[in-house]
Design a protein around this nucleic acid. Structure first.
Lengths: 343, 343
DNA sequence: TTGAAAGCGCTACCAT
DNA sequence: ATGGTAGCGCTTTCAA
């Protein structure tokens, strides 16, 4: 039925009085307790619908210690990958009566810690974090608390908790291998200064080079450390630097799509062609990849699956606390577009 | 100071016992009440810092009736305009100790109503809504409730409540005028099936045509009604239809940037050039406009200002309830890029 | 099957 | 300046 927006806040007490019952009985009906007379249940439910009863979550939360809210801490909501994930996460938990409290930290470790504290003070039932911390130290204390912690996309090898994300080594390998297959012999990698995923992708990148008997050249690994920059600006600056090398790369794997956009702009500004002079691969397969100046080849990270799996994991844990931490790696696949297609 | 993540939940009661004080005194110190002895205050604050005290928001909320949470209901978090706004909104209220509860409704009126109810049941202190309702009827009941309602971006002429957004007629006028100045004589408008802003922009569009002695041609006003489509798909489909007209337009004003992206793709797929054959203007000035196949001219909607003004308005109202509804119109400005620059 | 009592952690009100 | 009491709306025993 269509929620009728417009009536004043109704309490269980009101319904109880109306029906000559006790609040406890009403509460039990509401929560589907089964030791309630059929007739009573009917009357209560009917009256609730009539008055459009909505529980006061603050009261419920205080009494139960649960909030029916999940916290999602993301580095940057404007980054399409995270906004997509947030959306799918929210959709998935809403189906189960949960809400999502979202924080965007601007990739700042300090803000992230503050937001986490805020969320804990709101007693979120689970915390899903795509962390911007440089290391696990600030997060390790969370394990002592009673709230389930799910790391998303970015993980820390020395933090034993749940994780949902991509297989970074595989992603790095796949992207680099693709560039090599397209004929690139001097493949560069532009990482992100923050992301802990950068390491795994770098590993995959090096593996692919090694497997193809190509040398690893440190000067081909770039990453701006200016944290004033948005990702696209980071990509632009890093690419500029790569172009200034004596022997610039002929292929670039970028840590994410915004970085790739910036990098592509730098390449075009420099008067070079994509993919003829330099082929580009991004990661994230952002919704608008197809509309870019040069449609961007990108590793799809399955934000839908990511959101859904994270939500499911969180809900599972709430139902039946896990004693072992679980790791869910999602399949990634390469979506080839013009930016790397050389034939 | 750096929040120390890792200790168990501390209550006011604990601090009171530690210090031989009453809970009330502790509470007063925490809230900055001034009739408290200097020495006592110091001791309490010190102990709080020591134990990393965080108030239980559920309890506070139950006692005060306030939640220190604002609700933001957006049509689609993946739409960059809304994710930007959400981010800025969150940033702005965080500074004042508030959190943002975000819902993304997928442009579905029913989901939106449900989310609003959820938020009310969480007793959000203010509700900021970029509505997907076809009309004001479902929302009008909200005015009876005690929660301040702020409409954002999309408004309803028959709903007397606060509004923060752009001046749609001006936006439509500005964009259309620009196309005409660039030499377009057959300007089309692709609206959105949902947005209540579409009407205002249409008015501006017609005004601009009239002011330039150009005829208004109904067949030049397009808008897909398929709500399965993302905005970019809507733009693609609508543009396709415009291209099939006997005399297709030579300029298009699109209701938002994703629509414009879709429209541009349709134009290019059709073998036409932008802006030589058809000039395109979008709205929203999304972060990546500059990286598109053809950099997109767009009306900047100032998502930063929008978020900040909405936050400020909400905070103001909470401090001092408004008896008159306030309307804040933000300045929009045209950012001209290649998609419409004809000389 | 139903309900009375107690309590979740905090704040408002009114004494002292 | 400090604190006792009551209560926010709900859930959780446990008794009837």
């Amino acid at each position: 039925m269509i929620p009728k927006v417009g009536t004043a806040p109704v309490r269980m007490k009101d319904i109880a009085q109306d029906l000559g019952l006790s609040v406890v009985t009403v509460s039990k009906v509401f929560r589907g307790h089964r030791d309630i007379g059929e007739e009573t249940r009917r009357r209560v439910l009917h009256r609730m619908a009539e008055l459009n009863y909505r529980p006061n979550m603050a009261a419920r939360s205080l009494a139960t210690g649960r909030s029916f809210t999940m916290g999602f801490v993301a580095p940057d909501l404007v980054h399409p990958f995270f906004s997509e994930t947030a959306k799918h996460l929210a959709d998935a938990v809403r189906d189960k009566g949960y809400h999502l409290l979202i924080a965007s930290t601007g990739e700042e470790a300090r803000v992230e810690r503050e937001e986490i504290e805020h969320m804990l003070s709101r007693r979120v039932d689970a915390l899903i974090i795509a962390s911007s911390q440089p290391d696990a130290s600030s997060l390790s204390g969370l394990l002592q608390r009673d709230v389930p912690l799910i790391l998303m996309d970015r993980r820390f090898s020395d933090l034993d908790t749940h994780f949902v994300g991509g297989d970074d080594a595989r992603i790095g390998h796949m992207a680099t291998m693709h560039l090599i297959e397209q004929g690139c012999r001097q493949v560069a990698y532009i990482g992100s200064p923050y992301a802990s995923t950068a390491h795994g992708r770098l590993v995959g990148y090096r593996e692919a080079l090694a497997a193809s008997q190509l040398p690893f050249r440190p000067e081909y690994v770039a990453s701006s450390s200016h944290n004033d920059f948005a990702a696209d600006a980071t990509g632009y600056v890093s690419m500029k630097r790569l172009l200034e090398l004596e022997s610039p790369p002929d292929g670039v794997f970028c840590h994410n799509d915004p970085i790739a956009m910036g990098a592509m702009k730098a390449i075009l500004d420099h008067g070079l062609r994509i993919p003829e002079d330099i082929a580009v691969v991004g990661c994230g397969n952002v919704r608008y990849s197809d509309f870019l100046r040069v449609p961007l080849t990108s590793v799809d990270q399955d934000s839908l699956g990511l959101g859904q799996r994270a939500a499911r994991l969180a809900l599972d844990i709430l139902k039946k606390p896990a004693h072992r931490s679980r790791t869910i790696l999602l399949e990634s696949r390469l979506v080839v577009r013009a930016s790397s297609r050389r034939r």
